[in-house]
């Protein structure tokens, strides 16, 4: 039963004005925000980004704890980036010297700058996945990419694949659980032994899992055909995405924000 408890993606259910935004608007605004982080040249301009992000977080009513969870898997990457910048930037006033490694004022500045940028990057993108259901994200992506279908980008097919993948994560987890139990009953040991032994123990799990994944795929393809699926052409959608007042406000705010960030390059306020 344990495997059933996993949440799909990391959606945090809510009814805030951020949750209710059109997924297309959220994707575009997040994208703009991510780009803005690379436009920024100074710490003072980062204040703008923090202000923007902070407002959105406050509006979304998601506890900060959940958003900071997104940092966990990449914390090592952030520290590594900071350390490399700290040790290998050799311009500016030297503060300390240890063998071939020098720590300079510029190095500290760069390390903090890069670290902050990465943290803001992660917060921004997890905010989008926290406030948007995976299925809405997929639909939004399909709609946004659909103009590119004319030049051969399979927008509908990509979205369909995402939808099916999301749908079958719990099914395949159940399947894994079942196979694990079946193999354990036959004496397989998944918990003890060295890393090499553990890896070897996975073979009797992975082979049946792949076989059953193919069987499921075959069944599903037949069921989809039986329900008249024939690709994206001539297909209608039940959910029609409509841009509302809130979406207009979100776009306006994001545009103003981007303008301010670009302006901050020209006018060093601090």
């Amino acid at each position: 039963m344990a495997v059933r408890d996993i949440t799909l993606g990391q959606y945090f259910p809510g009814e805030s004005c951020i949750h209710r935004l059109d997924p297309r608007v959220k994707i575009v605004c997040t994208f703009v925000y991510l780009i803005s982080l690379f436009v920024v040249k100074s710490f003072s301009a980062f204040l703008l980004c923090i202000l923007f992000l902070g407002t959105v977080i406050a509006l979304s009513k998601i506890p900060f704890k959940f958003i900071s969870k997104g940092l966990k898997p990449v914390i090592f990457l952030i520290i590594l980036t900071m350390v490399i910048n700290l040790f290998f930037v050799s311009t500016g006033d030297v503060l300390a010297k240890l063998g071939p490694i020098t720590i300079t004022k510029d190095g500290i500045y760069r390390a903090l700058f890069m670290g902050l940028r990465l943290v803001l990057l992660i917060f921004g993108s997890s905010l989008m996945t926290l406030t948007t259901k995976p299925i809405e994200l997929t639909d939004g992506m399909e709609k946004l990419l659909s103009p590119l279908a004319k030049i051969g980008l399979p927008a509908h097919e990509l979205a369909m694949m995402m939808t099916i993948a999301l749908r079958f994560i719990p099914t395949l987890l159940d399947e894994t659980d079942k196979i694990m139990k079946a193999q354990t009953a036959r004496g397989a040991d998944f918990e003890n032994g060295s890393i090499k032994e553990k890896a070897k123990a996975l073979i009797p799990l992975l082979v049946p899992l792949f076989v059953s994944a193919f069987r499921i795929a075959g069944d599903l393809a037949m069921a989809m055909e039986a329900r008249c699926y024939h690709g994206g052409s001539g297909r209608t959608r039940m959910h029609q995405m409509k841009l509302g007042k809130g979406d207009a406000v979100a776009i306006a705010v994001t545009v103003i924000y981007l303008a301010l960030v670009i302006l901050s390059r020209q006018l060093p306020l601090l």
Partner: peptide
């Protein structure tokens, strides 16, 4: 057609979206 395995014939991770799948395929008005 309704198949034997209930798990392997549902397409979407939301019930109502799944029910809409067939009508969407034959181009019915939203």
């Amino acid at each position: 057609m309704v198949f034997q395995n209930p798990d392997n014939q549902l397409v979407s991770s939301v019930v109502e979206d799944d029910v809409a799948f067939g009508p969407e395929n034959i181009g019915i008005e939203p």
